[in-house]
């Protein structure tokens, strides 16, 4: 070990910064080298003098100030937390310019109106359904009443009453079997020609019903009135009922049939075939 290296280590030795092996090596050198020993002594003097350098005691004031500072800091942090909550509100309030507030209020109003309207409509719909049901029930009752009146009036001895009865068929929307049978029977058997003609008119309106069509075709041979015969022939042409050709031809062979009617029937047969 040379002196320069060992002199560099003197401070380390004094400061107790050397590893065990380094310290021993240095001490071995120092034991042999008086110059280095002298250098060590000088350095140690300085080192020890440094150690004697006084440091005044910090005053008690410092401790008091420290704890006061911590308390103040804690309070400030708590206040900051409270303030940050407040500042959120403040920011919202600041963001709400009069214009924006107005828009917001307006849109809230619209939403409110929509909700109220919807509620009102749905509240109204419920009774409306009930009313409809009531009306349906009432109209069914009226129809049934018309039907009863019609059937009873058809039995009436007065021809004008029977004509009124047939007028009801237009007011009865849905005509049931009972009514059509009564009408067909009237068409074939009523003593009054006018009643039969009106009945035929009414039955022609109901010709969608196959039973009515069949009744009408069968009725051709049973009529003796030329007016009814001609009217029937017209109805058959209008309905394009091919099944009526045979009964119509039968009428042509009957002796008591009016000539005018025969001509009419011939035209009708031509129109149908």
């Amino acid at each position: 070990m040379n002196c320069e290296h060992s002199r560099n280590q003197l401070v380390d030795l004094l400061g107790n910064q050397l590893a065990e092996a380094e310290r021993i090596t240095l001490e071995v050198h120092l034991a042999q080298c008086p110059d280095c020993r002298e250098e060590l002594a000088a350095t140690r003097r300085l080192w020890q003098a440094m150690g004697r350098m006084p440091v005044p005691e910090p005053t008690e004031k410092m401790r008091v100030r420290f704890y006061a500072m911590v308390e103040t800091y804690k309070d400030a942090e708590a206040a900051k937390r409270r303030r940050s909550l407040k500042s959120v509100f403040r920011r919202i309030r600041r963001a709400l310019t009069p214009q924006l507030a107005l828009r917001l209020a307006y849109s809230l109003l619209l939403v409110g109106a929509g909700l109220a309207g919807g509620y009102w409509l749905s509240a109204r719909n419920a009774p409306a359904v009930a009313y409809e049901r009531q009306i349906d029930a009432l109209s069914t009752q009226v129809q049934e009443m018309h039907q009863t009146v019609l059937l009873s009036l058809l039995e009436n001895p007065s021809a004008s009453e029977r004509l009124r009865a047939i007028g009801y068929t237009r007011e009865i929307g849905q005509v049931d079997r009972k009514v059509t049978e009564a009408l067909l029977s009237t068409l074939n058997n009523d003593p009054n020609v006018n009643v039969r003609l009106v009945t035929l008119e009414a039955l022609a309106q109901l010709a969608d019903d196959p039973k009515v069509r069949e009744g009408l075709v069968q009725s051709i041979t049973q009529q003796d009135s030329p007016l009814v015969q001609a009217a029937l022939a017209d109805v058959m042409v209008k309905l394009q009922e091919k099944r009526s050709v045979r009964p119509l031809k039968q009428l042509l062979h009957q002796e008591n049939v009016d000539d005018l009617v025969k001509t009419k029937i011939k035209e009708s047969i031509k129109a149908l075939s």
Binding site: P58, T59, K61, M62, R65, F66, M69, V70, Y73
Partner: peptide
Amino acid sequence: ASEDLVQNVFY
């Protein structure tokens, strides 16, 4: 001044 600085460091 050092007392002030100590306070400052802890702050």
